[in-house]
């Protein structure tokens, strides 16, 4: 009993220790890393991956995967940009764009739950479909001329109490989602589904409904991330968000969530997002080529999973 308690504490601490170790090493190598300006910059950089990874955590906790998030980001970005060009109020366009993300996610969920298809296959297919629709809608060209609404600019580029607004959005999303996961019945059902789907079903849990909800959350987070990106770029790019699913999955895994489902925490995902963000940020500061950055990121993922294996 005692040992198992120790191991659970240990397993929660490992990602955190890795994060602090990383911060110390990077600061020694280049003290300008801990400049407040750089930290704020870092927080803004990670907000998009953060939002997507938080949604992905729910999906992976049920033993699923969502490969379509990058395409959902691009499609919602294009659709909301289109609305703005057509004269829709920018704030309304942001709300609609985020909700459309939830709708695209819900479609994934319906196909997975009601169609009884594997999440990998379904989201692989919708990844292409949503990307294709984005290209069709944009004609393959960026959508620009979104106007100069102050609120819209603020959403991607502004500051609130000195903190970048995207980072504030990410932190708010984290608080809401962590509350749902750890304090609400819905979160308990999410873990139950990942731990033993059959037992969850037999226990009278509406498994299909929970799954659809979970993929909707993932899609909604991708949509929200899409809105931030649209504001930051002041345009919609048809190729935006490509391979974003990979960084999100990597963050979830580094954060200690098991791909088999049932085990993990959203706080771990936050740490994973920070680790990936700091790696990118620091290697830029240190002038390491982006080619090497990819290699390092891959190695970090492997180490994270290896440590996870050792623990269990």
């Amino acid at each position: 009993m005692k040992t198992s308690k120790l191991t659970t504490i240990w397993s929660k601490l490992v990602p955190l220790l890795a994060l602090f170790g990383l911060i110390v090493v990077v600061t020694i190598l280049n003290p300008s890393f801990i400049d407040p300006a750089n930290i704020m910059n870092l927080l803004r950089q990670i907000s998009i991956n953060g939002l997507i990874a938080f949604g992905m955590t729910f999906v992976i906790l049920t033993g699923g995967i969502d490969l379509s998030v990058g395409s959902i980001l691009a499609l919602t970005s294009a659709l909301s940009a289109g609305m703005m060009v057509a004269g829709v109020d920018p704030i309304l366009a942001i709300v609609i764009g985020t909700l459309l993300g939830a709708v695209f996610g819900a479609l994934n969920g319906v196909l997975i739950a009601k169609g009884k298809m594997a999440p990998f296959i379904v989201t692989l297919a919708t990844m292409t479909i949503y990307r294709g629709l984005t290209l069709v809608y944009t004609g393959g060209k960026p959508i620009t001329g979104l106007g100069d609404s102050y609120a819209f600019q603020l959403f991607g580029k502004g500051y609130f109490l000195g903190i970048p607004v995207p980072a504030v959005t990410m932190i708010l999303a984290f608080i809401v989602l962590a509350f749902m996961l750890h304090k609400m019945a819905f979160g308990r059902k999410t873990y139950a589904l990942g731990g033993n789907e059959k037992a969850a079903l037999v226990s009278g849990i509406k498994v299909d409904r929970v799954k659809i909800m979970i993929y909707s959350i993932s899609g909604m987070m991708a949509g929200l991330a899409g809105m931030i990106l649209t504001s930051r770029l002041n345009s919609a790019q048809p190729t935006a968000g490509q391979a974003y699913e990979m960084d999100a999955i990597a963050a979830v895994v580094i954060g200690g969530t098991s791909l088999a489902g049932g085990k993990g925490r959203i706080a771990g995902t936050f740490i994973g997002v920070l680790i990936i963000g700091i790696l990118n940020n620091a290697m830029n500061l240190l002038g390491i080529s982006s080619f090497y950055q990819q290699v390092v990121k891959g190695v970090v993922i492997l180490i994270a999973v290896l440590l996870d294996r050792k623990r269990s």
Binding site: Y191, A192, G195, N196, K198, A199, A200, V202, G262, K263
Partner: peptide
Amino acid sequence: KEEGLVLDF
């Protein structure tokens, strides 16, 4: 084990 319990719970 298969259907009654979530063993990790």
